[in-house]
Design a protein around this nucleic acid. Structure first.
Lengths: 216, 216
DNA sequence: ACGCTTCATATTGTATACAATTCGAGTCGG
DNA sequence: CCGACTCGAATTGTATACAATATGAAGCGT
């Protein structure tokens, strides 16, 4: 619940997260809230002051750029490993997944939520084939970001199609078991997503960010 | 305390970590133990069964290889960023640090603990100059590994000198602000450390691993 | 002998009370 | 008017009790 509140923007960056307040809001006691805050902290969604008070983490544009840069590197690496370990069964699943994704885009208007879901499934499948628990855990903290998920809603139809096209190219690389190719495409895929975000973000800050209500 | 018990080998991989048992052992109640286990879990030092029971994480050689591979990639990236952002003041600190490290090696017998301490300081300084909070948090879970710290004690004098030499080469790359060079050296530095580990480990498993007493 | 069920035990999840610490407003003195 | 201090309120840390759940062994029937 807390994660959702942060990702959705209901809680703004910098807001203090009092354990008692959250406990009441969520209808539980402080104990599970404390557990949750610890986990969110390890994902850097929550930051703590020197005196152990919790706040919604506030990310500068540089920080966000770092996240995408690291994602590009790590997901690129995952794609390389996946290509080297690919099997026909998974390849079929990936093709089916991307077909469904394409259909979501083709709808009018495009079904962005479905797109996001399939996109996530696609990337998760790759990560699974990459077969590195450690890589999974590192990437987990990078993909569960408010920034990442709010972004796709600003994608235009052409950007969605381009994203889908890159997935298809990835499939080609996987079919050939070409790790270097897969890595290059994936890396570019993520970097393009960053620039799409940066453009949309600049446009938004000029007016006002949606879903943010400073209550204090 | 728990981290130390795991890293030192007092608790063997696979051992169950009952909250109550640990609480008694550490002289506190279950509440702070639970917090600790959550944090250790996010570092993958502790794993949990489907029913939420905690165990000391058990790493295969492949897993360990993954850790070094990711470290090579991420620390290489850190070195590149550091080279691009290097300032003369930090460069001086790094030189002083490596000089101290060299002195620790020159002693007879080599002061391995001092070496480790300085080595850590050296890498931390680089990470700091790289100026990416996210990178710091990703690497944190990779360097705090039982495997990493037990390894250096098996280094021979020549390996210690070689490690030190690589640091000096890194300093040259930093002085020239050559990011690509720095990345290449750092990546190799870590990869070499892995092979040193793998060799020592194979040698050890042939006899028996030290510091492991299966109590159950 | 094998598999299924049952139940005592062990273990974790949650709520609550209290202790320790921190923050901030108000006050006093200069 | 400014700064340091004090004290009450707010917040987090810890201990403990109890509830919910999982585990494993004994018992039962086939």
């Amino acid at each position: 619940m807390i994660r959702e509140m942060i990702v959705s923007g209901e809680l703004a960056p910098g807001d203090q997260l009092g354990e008692e307040a959250l406990a009441e809001k969520c209808g539980v006691s402080r104990t599970p809230i404390r557990d949750a805050l610890r986990r969110l902290e390890s994902d850097l969604l929550v930051s703590r002051s020197e005196s152990q008070r919790s706040f919604v983490a506030d990310w500068s544009l540089d920080d966000i750029g770092d996240v995408f840069e690291l994602r590009a590197m790590l997901e690129g690496h995952a794609a390389r490993r996946a290509a080297e370990r690919m099997n026909d069964d998974t390849l079929k699943q990936l093709r089916a997944c991307n077909a469904s994704l394409k259909k979501a885009i083709a709808a009018n208007p495009p079904d962005v939520d479905r797109f996001l879901e399939r996109n996530r499934e696609f990337h998760n499948l790759i990560l699974q084939v990459a077969a590195s628990r450690r890589l999974v855990s590192l990437l987990a903290s990078l993909i569960e970001q408010p920034v990442v998920w709010r972004t796709a809603h600003h994608y235009g139809a052409d950007e969605l199609r381009r994203s889908c096209g890159e997935h298809e190219e990835l499939l080609s690389a996987f079919a050939r078991r070409d790790g270097s190719w897969a890595e290059a495409i994936m890396s570019g895929h993520i970097r393009r997503a960053f620039h799409a975000y940066a453009d949309a973000h600049r446009g938004l800050t000029a007016i006002d960010k949606p879903g943010r209500k400073r209550t204090a």
